[in-house]
């Protein structure tokens, strides 16, 4: 266990993208950042910039127009990185799975590491999902920066 592993597990920064979501999970994600749930006690910080982020939190499924944006954000993130799909829409498009404009879950576009079910997912579940992703980050890669 080196310093990288320790750092990755203890201070994951997050970028959030709301794809074809109803906002329910997105708002619950915001709630998880605020005092009652307080993800900052785990060192989790919400950043707006994918280039600063370790974990991508996705809410909502992928549709034809936002697939490009999801890929874009994912590829802008430096490795090692993890993706958390929050809510059934991000996992499998949920109730919208046979809509004409939906591609399906986020995993149709980018690799997903942690699936958080729920409609809408509860803040506790979202925190659990992010912490699992942080563990994955700590286990992944070598000791060097950008190891994948």
């Amino acid at each position: 266990m080196g310093v990288y592993r320790w750092a990755r597990q203890r201070s994951p920064w997050i970028v959030h993208f709301n794809a074809a979501s109803c906002n329910g999970c997105a708002i619950e994600f915001f709630t998880a950042m605020t005092p009652i749930y307080d993800t900052e006690r785990f060192g989790i910080i919400n950043t707006g910039n994918p280039k600063h982020a370790d974990i991508l939190v996705m809410t909502g499924g992928a549709n034809h127009r936002n697939a490009r944006v999801i890929k874009n954000i994912f590829w802008q993130m430096p490795a090692p990185k993890a993706v958390v799909a929050v809510g059934v829409c991000a996992c499998s498009a949920g109730i919208f799975h046979d809509c004409y404009n939906m591609l399906g879950g986020v995993d149709k576009v980018i690799p997903v590491d942690v699936y958080v079910p729920g409609c809408a997912a509860r803040p506790e579940a979202i925190i659990e999902g992010i912490l699992r992703a942080a563990e994955l980050l700590a286990e992944s890669g070598g000791e060097g920066v950008g190891g994948d």
Binding site: N18, A19, A20, S21, G60, G61, N63, R65, N66, V69, I95, F96, D98, C99, Y100, N101, M102
Partner: peptide, 10 residues
């Protein structure tokens, strides 16, 4: 169109 799902048709 980034959130368009097609709910009215569903």
């Amino acid at each position: 169109g980034y959130v368009h799902r097609g709910l009215e048709k569903l």
